[in-house]
């Protein structure tokens, strides 16, 4: 039940990032990206071969940290889902889409 909720959150974050209604920030760690929702910060990171989602509350306590292997039982595609969120978050934080639009604009 608990992991089902986490998976629902990951899917929702992915949708919102894809539609551009959720922004991400780069952090000091090159493979970790951050967004803030309500009173919580959510981080998506690539660590070795796995992807991790971390939730930090307003008191700076890590209240949840989950990796794709832990979610595999509920969702066989957990790895692909988290990787996809990670890629979208990275692109958003780095402004990749804006850069590509600018480059396309200058060569068209």
């Amino acid at each position: 039940m608990h992991n089902t909720k986490i998976l629902k959150l990951i899917h929702r974050l992915r949708e919102k990032t894809e539609t551009g209604s959720l922004g991400w920030e780069a952090t000091a760690s090159p493979k970790k990206f951050l967004t803030t929702l309500s009173d919580y910060s959510v981080l998506i990171s690539e660590e070795g071969d796995d992807y991790f989602l971390t939730i930090v509350d307003s008191w700076d306590d890590v209240i949840e940290r989950v990796s794709d292997p832990e979610l595999k039982q509920e969702d066989r595609k957990a790895y692909e889902t988290m990787k996809s969120l990670y890629v979208l978050a990275r692109r958003n934080a780095k402004g990749v889409d804006e850069a590509i639009d600018d480059i396309l604009g200058s060569i068209e």
Binding site: S29, D39, S41
Partner: peptide, 21 residues
């Protein structure tokens, strides 16, 4: 307001990451 709290919250998380690095 909520927007201001979000900005401060994200700063807190950024300094946590700096510390961890």
């Amino acid at each position: 307001n909520e927007e201001h709290r979000k900005l401060i919250q994200s700063s807190i998380a950024q300094f946590r990451e700096l510390e961890s690095l």
